[in-house]
Each structure stands twice: as structure tokens, then as C-alpha cells.
């Protein structure tokens, strides 16, 4: 059994030759900036929630490299189907900060993003996005598109039938789909080892007859490289891939959770030493002249942009309540129009 694919160790030292894309400093800086932007968004979202200005929020702290690495390898015409923890991926794809705030602030318009119109909104019922990815991939195959459907779910999601059943059809029909597992070691309070006796979640691909690969999910270069390979396999008509990204949930499950009830601070501290931003920053400093000034400028611009987006979100009025009737059906049945009329919104 091979070790998880990794290019940088926890301190940012090169473990082996980097893939071609990663020799380009600008590409790596863009990945780093995307991860920093995601983390800044996270910080802001939590503070808005704590002050009663955002709904329950699922932090992606510590897992930024997964989402950013995965979508960084995707093309515009591909379709991204995220779980509720993949903000970094959504942002990279072009969903705006303001739209994300709207969604987590309890406004459906956050899912009507202007950006990647074909991407799916966040999926809350765990693992139920995987069958959708199979369906999108089927549509792509059928219509002769060269796109790939890319779904991300958690370690807990791999215990669901939805996951196995759709992985199976991806294998059977050689569908152009990539399933990514964000293995952050926890499903709320249930640790990874209580989720399954399987040694690696990637091994679940064996049952579907497709390749399953484990990567260091805190190494954005590894995530992107593994995804790039999986996407080109899919585009070449060779079917799907399962990628398990090893990472760790440094925060609570959501803002409604208190992880100190079920896990040791020592474990969390240990994982802080492996988090994804530091190692890439160290590498950028060492290999691409990333300076303190660069770092400060990036933090400042992320902060400014996010503050502005939060202001815009907070200034956005709620939809008129009649909107709850307006979008259910392309043409509402009389029952709905009658209830809308009775409700009597403007």
C-alpha cells in the first residue's frame, strides 16, 4: 500500500519533485491566496454568527487545501457538487463572498449565484450529492460534453448507501465523475475509526472497480495533482476516481457545536502543526521570494474584500415573503397561487 500522495511536508519542505504546475510561482501564489481568502471568510463568518448576524455556519478551518486544490484543477464547464464545508471551492469557482454570506445568512438567493451557473448549491443531507454527480456525469456522457462532475463529501458520508451506490454506478457506466472525500477525522462527534473498519476510505473504490487514491489533504499541490490526473482520466473516457484527502477539522463541527465535549485539545494542537497554509507559505518564501510585505498585503486585501462583502450582505434586505411561493414550480398550480393570494404579500 502506497503512502498518501504528498509533495510538501508539514513544514513546507519538498518531499519529491513537484508536478509541472507547481513549479510556477504565480500558480502557487494564486492557490495560497485562495486558501487565505477562504480562511478569512471563515473567520468573518464565525464572528458574524457569534454576533447574531449569520445563521449556523460550518467552518472549513484546516481543510482549505482540499476544496481549493480540487477546483483549481477543474475547468469552467465541469460541474462542482459541494457538501456544506467546501467554501474555498465555491469561491474559486466564482461564487461571490456576498452570495456565500447570503446563503449562510438564510437567504435562498445565495444559491442563485451569478458565477458557475451549472454548479450545484451546497448539499446538506450528507452524501446525497453523490448520486447527483453520477446524474450530471450521465448527462455529460450522453450529450457528448467533455466535462466532469466533481462531488465532495466527508468521511462520515462514506458510510452512506448514497455514496457506495453512486460510486458503483460511476464504475459500472464509466461515468466522468470524481468523488472527493474530505476526511477531516470527524463526523460531528464520531471519529473516523468509529465510522468504518476499512483501513483507508480510498479502498472503498475497490468495490466499485475504479481507482481510489489517498492524498495528503493539507498539501494543496498533492490535492490538485491527484485531481488533475483524475479529471484527465475522466475526460479521456476512462471513468471515475475516488480521492481521499487526509486532513483535520480544526474547528467545531459548526457554530452550533462544542467539540471540547468529545475531543482533546492536545489532538487539535497536534493537527495545527500540519495545517495547510503554513507549509505552502514556507515553500513560497523559500522558493518564490514570498515576503512579509506580500503576506501582509494579501491579508489586508482579503480582509477589506470580506468586510465589504459582509457589509453588502448585511445591507441586503430579505426577499419579500411571497418569494416562498414564487419559485416552487415553473408555473404554480392553483393551490399554490391560492395560498400565495391568501398570504397576501404585496
Amino acid at each position: 500500500m502506497s503512502d498518501p500522495l504528498a509533495f510538501l511536508d508539514a513544514d513546507g519542505r519538498r518531499l519529491r519533485d513537484l508536478p509541472d504546475f507547481a513549479s510556477d510561482g504565480e500558480t502557487l501564489k494564486a492557490l495560497y491566496a485562495a486558501m487565505v481568502r477562504t480562511r478569512s471568510f471563515d473567520t468573518k463568518a464565525i464572528s458574524l454568527q457569534r454576533t447574531g448576524r449569520l445563521g449556523t455556519y460550518a467552518s472549513s478551518l484546516g481543510q482549505e487545501a482540499i476544496s481549493v486544490g480540487v477546483v483549481g484543477a477543474m475547468q469552467d464547464a465541469d460541474v462542482f457538487l459541494p457538501s456544506f464545508r467546501e467554501h474555498g471551492g465555491q469561491l474559486w469557482r466564482g461564487v461571490t463572498l456576498e452570495e456565500l454570506f447570503l446563503y449562510w445568512g438564510g437567504d435562498e438567493r445565495g444559491n442563485d449565484f451569478a458565477g458557475p451557473r451549472q454548479d450545484f448549491p451546497v448539499c446538506i443531507p450528507v452524501a446525497s450529492q453523490f448520486p447527483h454527480a453520477a446524474g450530471v456525469a450521465l448527462a455529460m456522457q450522453q450529450k457528448g460534453e467533455r466535462g466532469v462532475a466533481v462531488a465532495v463529501g466527508g468521511d462520515g458520508a462514506t458510510s452512506k448507501g448514497d455514496f457506495y451506490e453512486s460510486l458503483n454506478v460511476v464504475g459500472t457506466w464509466q461515468l466522468p465523475a470524481v468523488f472527493v472525500i474530505n476526511n477531516n477525522e470527524w463526523a460531528i462527534s464520531v471519529p473516523r475509526k468509529e465510522q468504518t473498519r476499512a483501513r483507508r476510505l480510498a479502498d472503498k473504490a475497490v468495490a466499485a472497480g475504479i481507482p481510489g487514491e489517498q492524498v495528503d489533504g493539507n498539501d494543496v499541490i498533492a490535492v490538485r495533482e491527484a485531481t488533475t490526473r483524475a479529471l484527465s482520466r475522466a475526460r479521456a473516457g476512462k471513468g471515475g476516481t475516488l480521492i481521499e484527502c487526509l486532513s483535520y477539522r480544526l474547528g467545531d463541527h459548526t457554530t452550533a457545536d462544542d467539540a471540547s465535549r468529545y475531543r482533546d485539545e492536545a489532538e487539535v494542537s497536534l493537527h495545527w502543526k500540519r495545517e495547510p497554509l503554513t507549509r505552502l507559505r514556507n515553500h513560497l518564501v523559500e522558493a518564490h521570494g514570498w515576503s512579509k510585505e506580500n503576506e501582509e498585503a494579501l491579508l489586508r486585501s482579503c480582509g477589506d474584500e470580506i468586510d465589504a462583502a459582509a457589509e453588502a450582505y448585511l445591507a441586503t434586505e430579505a426577499e419579500s415573503p411571497g418569494a416562498m411561493f414564487a419559485h416552487l414550480y415553473a408555473s404554480p398550480p392553483r393551490e399554490i397561487s391560492a395560498q400565495a393570494e391568501e398570504f397576501g404579500d404585496d
Binding site: 460541474v79 457538487l81 451549472q118 450545484f120 446525497s128 453523490f130 448520486p131 447527483h132 454527480a133 453520477a134 446524474g135 450530471v136 456525469a137 450521465l138 448527462a139 455529460m140 450522453q142 450529450k143 462532475a149 448507501g161 448514497d162 451506490e165 453512486s166 458503483n168 454506478v169 459500472t172
Partner: peptide, 20 residues
Amino acid sequence: TPLSETVIAGMAVGAAAHGL
């Protein structure tokens, strides 16, 4: 399809949303 009602329904959702 393989024998999976979850996939039959869920794949229909994904395929419908993507143009089939």
C-alpha cells in the same frame, strides 16, 4: 441501472439539472 433506488432517483435529479 445497477440495483439502487437511491441512484435511480438521485441520478435523475443530477441528470435533469444538467439538461436531460
